[in-house]
Design a protein around this nucleic acid. Structure first.
Lengths: 118, 118
DNA sequence: CTGCGTTGTTCAAATTAAAACATAACGCAT
DNA sequence: ATGCGTTATGTTTTAATTTGAACAACGCAG
């Protein structure tokens, strides 16, 4: 430490994706998408995340309308009452976002170091 | 572009500083601090930012209690009814945060490029 | 064609957040 | 002492957000 201001500041932050100036995908929505993939049901995914069905449904609506192509296919009726499934585009975007988020985490750590050491 | 997913995603985000697991300084509060430095009055700074005095005051309280040392000296009474002024520590921290934010902007741009070009 | 569990939608209720109001405390100037 | 403009804080109102309950629409299984 080369000066007197050496207290521990942590640099924190969040990132998300915009499309047409609208935010449409961040960590929370990615979590929801992954739960949908795991459970095959929007209602169950919402319940698993302790989120209201309405909120979950609106999140998916926002994702599908903002993104350049749909990410979640929702169908009602049928064998188990309905289906929620991800498109290949969703899978790729989730993967991209998580890689991006890893880079961001590394950025935060490196910047915390810089901030506390000069 | 080497694949079919070449639509323009923009990576956006926000960063802030934590101290003892509490967020205490982000872009908004830095703006407020700079207005205080400019005007010498918390009330006038709040008004200039179209923010309620109460909100401004609570922001300063949070900054002063969370930060390792005070950033704003508030005094009531006296010549002009009162004074609000920044400490040297505040000036340094503002400068650090703005440099940090510049790095972050660059990070966002570079990541947007990566996301849209691979 | 009935039952089932889901998606899709509305609407009142409840919770939370923000703004507005009121007023005390302060210290310098006059 | 009085006035002034500020800091400091409690209280009340209002607005915004979220939740919950309710119910229609759907399509397969039996």
């Amino acid at each position: 430490m080369s000066n007197t201001y050496h207290w521990k500041f942590k640099v924190s932050g969040r990132i998300w994706l915009d499309c047409n100036e609208h935010s449409f995908l961040g960590q929370g929505k990615v979590e929801l998408l992954k739960k949908i993939q795991e459970l095959g049901s929007l209602r169950q995914a919402a319940q698993a995340m302790e989120m209201s069905y309405r909120q979950a449904w609106e999140n998916i609506k926002k994702i599908n309308t903002c993104a350049p192509e749909p990410m979640v296919i929702l169908k009602r009726g049928g064998l188990n009452g309905g289906i929620a499934e991800l498109t290949p585009f969703a899978l790729k975007t989730i993967h991209d976002f998580e890689k991006l988020n890893d880079s961001f985490e590394a950025f935060l750590i490196s910047q915390s170091d810089i901030l506390n050491n000069d």
